[in-house]
């Protein structure tokens, strides 16, 4: 038995960016649910809001924050690629190159962004005074 061949995306860059778009989208959706609830604590009391924010500042959640930013950044960049495929007349022809452009920009932004986000945690864990 042979799988149907010749579909545009199957097993290639286009398919994997589609998969990653879905996965990151679902992750962001569930974070948004939690984020609206945690922010709603400003209507309860300053103290309860500050306590939930303190959990966001712990090393483990700080690491998850990097994952969240990565998910949002990929979803945003790939979303722009999807729009280019839909609305730019040469979009379909360059979809593969645009996938690599998305990944290049992703890495170029994530490296300094990760450094900034974990700098405090890093200093805290390893005892630097900065």
């Amino acid at each position: 038995m042979q799988a149907p061949a010749g579909t545009l995306y199957r097993g290639r860059e286009g398919m994997w960016s589609w998969v990653a778009h879905r996965v990151t989208g679902v992750l962001i959706f569930f974070f948004l649910f939690a984020h609206v609830l945690d922010t709603a604590l400003v209507r309860v009391s300053p103290d309860s809001y500050n306590r939930i924010m303190d959990t966001y500042k712990t090393p483990l959640v700080n690491l998850m924050e990097v994952g969240l930013v990565g998910a949002v950044l990929f979803h945003a960049l790939n979303g722009l690629r999807v729009m280019a495929i839909d609305f730019w007349e040469k979009g379909t022809r360059y979809q593969k190159q645009m996938t690599w452009a998305v990944l290049t920009v992703f890495v170029a932004v994530m490296v300094p962004a990760t450094y900034r986000m974990v700098a405090h945690t890093f200093a805290e864990l390893f005892g630097s005074t900065t």
Partner: peptide, 27 residues
């Protein structure tokens, strides 16, 4: 999606990268 690229990336930049990032957020 197009609007959210600016709104959400701007939000993350201000909240998590600028100044002290998440460490400075409180009531």
């Amino acid at each position: 999606g197009l609007l959210l690229v600016f709104l959400v990336l701007g939000h993350l930049f201000i909240m998590l990268l600028l100044d002290g990032g998440v460490q400075r957020i409180n009531f």
